[in-house]
Simulated scan of single mutants.
Amino acid sequence: MESIDDNRVVEAKRRKEKNLLAELQQLDIKADNLEILFIAVKEAKILEIYVKRKTQKQFRWFKSYLFSTFSGVLGPKKQEGDKQIPEGFYQITHLNPKSKYHLSLGINYPNAYDQANAFTGSAIYIHGGMESVGCIAIGDDAIEEVYVLTEMAQQNGQKDIPVLIYPYTMHAEKHKEMLEITDESTAHFWNILATSYQYFQENKVPLSYEFKGKQIEYLT
């Protein structure tokens, strides 16, 4: 017998899967060769999904969703209970059909960089609903699309689904302005993120990186 949670996912698929497949087909992408990438921009309160075929290098914009609410301020999440949405480079860890907020996708905060810097916190998700304490909330209708698309990518072999979270649109002029009104530590971190943001905007390919203790180093 199906549980209520199973039915929640079944209903999301019934409502969203057909249209998603048709929209992907317009980009010449099928479910069995789909890869996805998330970009969230906190100041703009927007979550973007980019897609590509497995054989392609470059991603293409697919959909954007507005946050349904927002907590915290610009700047990385550093401790449990600070209500901050994290900033940096993350992955989807799991799909949660039993979310308090309809459906949700788990994010691997704290990542290795966060842990090395003694940042604390847990249970960070992209989820539905109209409430958030450090998570990315996009409402029930939007999370159904995001959940179904993510499950589609995972079931067809995408093990690592990137979630790149930036404080603001980090174009050079905007970035320069923001550095002038923040502290030295945050400015250093934002400089690292800006390199990634600008590279993706120019190339539609995520810049490869690795965590080296308390630092993030880019791979060329």
Rank of each mutant, 00 (worst) to 15 (best):
I4V: 13
V9E: 03
V10M: 10
K13G: 06
K16P: 01
K16E: 05
L21V: 02
Q25Y: 02
I29L: 03
D32R: 13
D32I: 03
N33T: 07
L34N: 00
K42S: 02
K42M: 02
A44E: 11
A44K: 15
L47Q: 02
E48T: 05
Y50E: 04
Y50A: 05
R53G: 09
R53H: 04
T55R: 12
R60S: 10
G75Q: 00
P76L: 11
Q79H: 09
E80N: 11
I85F: 08
E87Q: 13
G88I: 06
L95K: 14
N96D: 14
G106M: 11
Y109W: 07
Q115C: 08
F119E: 00
T120E: 03
G121I: 00
A123Y: 11
Y125V: 13
I126Y: 10
H127F: 08
S132C: 13
I136T: 10
I136Y: 11
A137W: 06
G139P: 00
E144L: 08
T150P: 14
E151K: 15
Q154M: 15
Q154C: 14
D160G: 06
V163T: 06
L164G: 04
Y166R: 07
Y166H: 10
Y166C: 05
P167K: 01
H171I: 08
E173A: 15
E177H: 04
E177Q: 09
E180C: 02
E184F: 02
E184C: 00
A187H: 00
F189M: 00
I192Y: 03
L193S: 01
S196R: 04
F200S: 02
K204E: 07
V205D: 09
S208M: 15
G213T: 05
K214Y: 08
